[in-house]
């Protein structure tokens, strides 16, 4: 069943690349956060595949941690966007350039 491995890795890499594209071209902050979720999912897939192929549960457990961190990140990130939207009336990252040089 090692064919799972190559296929899964290709799928993981593809989803990760799509996530990068989404992260780089989207202007909606929530969509960017979703692109990040996409990348995290791709990573999870790779972890699970390696855990399965190398008969070790370490990868699986790492997936649990990734999911937990993703939850925390989504919660805080969305809270920040709510705050920004409330004070600026937009969640367009193109307009969030207060830290420009």
């Amino acid at each position: 069943m090692t064919s799972y491995m190559i296929n899964n890795l290709v799928l993981s890499l593809a989803i990760f690349s799509i996530g990068i594209i989404g992260f780089l071209v989207k202007r909606n902050a929530i969509a960017i956060l979703m692109a990040i979720e996409l990348m995290l999912n791709a990573a999870n897939l790779a972890f699970v595949t390696f855990a399965y192929s190398f008969a070790s549960v370490d990868g699986t457990i790492l997936v649990l941690f990734v999911i937990t961190v993703a939850t925390a990140e989504a919660a805080v990130g969305l809270a920040i966007f709510i705050r920004i939207y409330r004070s600026r009336g937009t969640i367009d990252v193109d307009k969030m350039t207060t830290l420009h040089g």
Partner: peptide, 18 residues
């Protein structure tokens, strides 16, 4: 001149990272 690089745009930094 160099500070123009610091656009404050998230995606610009993302491209640099990539």
């Amino acid at each position: 001149r160099l500070r123009k690089l610091q656009t404050g745009q998230l995606q610009a930094y993302g491209v640099g990272m990539l």
